[in-house]
Design a protein around this nucleic acid. Structure first.
Lengths: 252, 252
DNA sequence: AACACTTGTGTTAATATCTTACATGGTAGA
DNA sequence: TCTACCATGTAAGATATTAACACAAGTGTT
């Protein structure tokens, strides 16, 4: 079947990074080179690969090679983030309306979200673009001044947005957490926005990988008791977990 | 000098995403194609570009590819658009405040804009991200529902933004133009936004490559006399130009 | 100054790769 | 059953790339 073969080619390329047509030919001896060419063309149009002379290479590979310095930042704790994002995604139901922030954990969540009929509000540019790929999903971008470090928007003006919009659920992530100082982040305007979000949403889920615990950032936007669900990883300290559970907060 | 040329090629590629050898050849008429090939080879080994059949593409571009249907992306880097964008960019002065739309021509403009102290409002997600790279430039994203086809936002809510913001200049592009129907685009909400923009801005510059002339899209957002400057290419018909000039509109 | 030697470049032919156009067979729906 | 369409194959032709050699200008050595 054509589709399977194309999928297989894509996976191969993701693993190997780069393949020549001759290599592909030995992988798929029962179809002609021309067919493989056509497959590659399709994959290229889908944006998954790049055709180069002699064959093709995976887009992922290219990204890896080039973004070494930046990769370090984002690659930190990626596995945990993805697992946390998957947990969060499993909580989303069809026809709901939710807010997602613009951080890297939120970006992971955006990738994990199923393509179903939900409405998502976000202040992350990259998150919005990622979500725009999904056909059934509705995205609304919160406007405001663009913060260059994290490609999010934040501004007092966003407030006027909120007056006319509604969402049941806010899923956000913090840069730091201690029981005393609550959930905090580095930007005041962002903290402001997240506070507003808390007021607007019926429920608030917090994604927090355990590396954030014990850190303090300048601006607190939520306290321990403000959240309804805490989504974290297995490293999460048991004693802290107890504190959440005592307040009827679900920890998962 | 070899080094300068290579640097120039790299910059060119970052701006335009992808170039064929023939295009490069016209940019550097005083060296042979073979030399350019060798330059590309070097840049490839340095990891800055990827050579593809017929030419090369910027690694940076590839990173963006994953977030946008690829075919569209490359198709849009036409020479005319870039030349028009360059003309438009040359009109921008330091310390001004302007609006740019989210279309592909606007994207070219974003790339051409100098990194000086100006404030830019836009409703294009990709445009905002592009502009966020520039250190001295200030970007504000207009919020609203994200339109998946063109990664722009548009919504009635955007109106509330405009009440608190000011910009002197709006530089926008249309999808279609006829003297009778004016400048039009395919989306009603977008047309709405652009109309508002017209009211808010002191001046409006229109970027219009000649391929758009004679086409009509469903929603007109500006008429001939609404604009102050028309930025177009050399193919622009002389008789039409006359019509603009009669209304004291600068054509360049 | 004469001499290798390196480096950047151009020219051409040989090679590799890609596209185009057309032919074939199988399959789903009319 | 027939038609239309899709996925595929084949091969000629177009295009792009490499390889090989040549040359000129600058550099250092004797």
């Amino acid at each position: 079947m054509k589709k399977d073969r194309i999928e297989e080619i894509a996976e191969l390329l993701d693993k190997r990074g780069k393949l020549t047509l001759n290599q592909l030919d030995t992988y798929f001896p029962d179809v002609s080179q021309m067919t493989l060419r056509r497959d590659l063309l399709q994959l290229e149009q889908a944006g998954r690969i790049i055709r180069v002379r002699g064959g093709a290479m995976s887009v992922k590979e290219v990204q890896k090679v080039s973004s070494e310095p930046y990769a370090k930042k984002t690659a930190m704790h990626t596995d945990e983030k993805i697992r946390i994002a998957q947990k969060a995604a499993s909580l989303i139901e069809e026809n709901c309306s939710l807010f997602i922030d613009g951080g890297t954990t939120a970006m992971c969540l955006a990738k994990e979200l199923p393509d179903i009929n939900i409405h998502v509000f976000t202040n992350g540019l990259a998150v919005a673009i990622e979500l725009a790929q999904k056909k059934n999903l509705n995205v609304t971008m919160l406007g405001g001044q663009v913060m260059k470090e994290n490609l999010s928007t934040a501004s007092p003006v966003a407030k006027s947005y909120f007056e006319n919009t509604n969402f049941e659920l806010a899923i956000i992530s913090a840069s730091a957490f201690t029981p005393e100082n609550g959930f905090s982040c580095g930007s005041m305007v962002e903290a402001d926005l997240l506070k507003m979000t808390r007021q607007k949403a019926k429920a608030m889920y917090m994604m927090l990988d355990s590396s954030k615990i014990g850190k303090i950032m300048p601006h607190t936007f939520a306290r321990l008791e403000d959240i309804d669900v805490l989504i974290t990883d297995d490293e999460f300290p048991a004693d802290l977990k107890e504190e959440f559970l005592q307040r009827d907060i679900v920890v998962m």
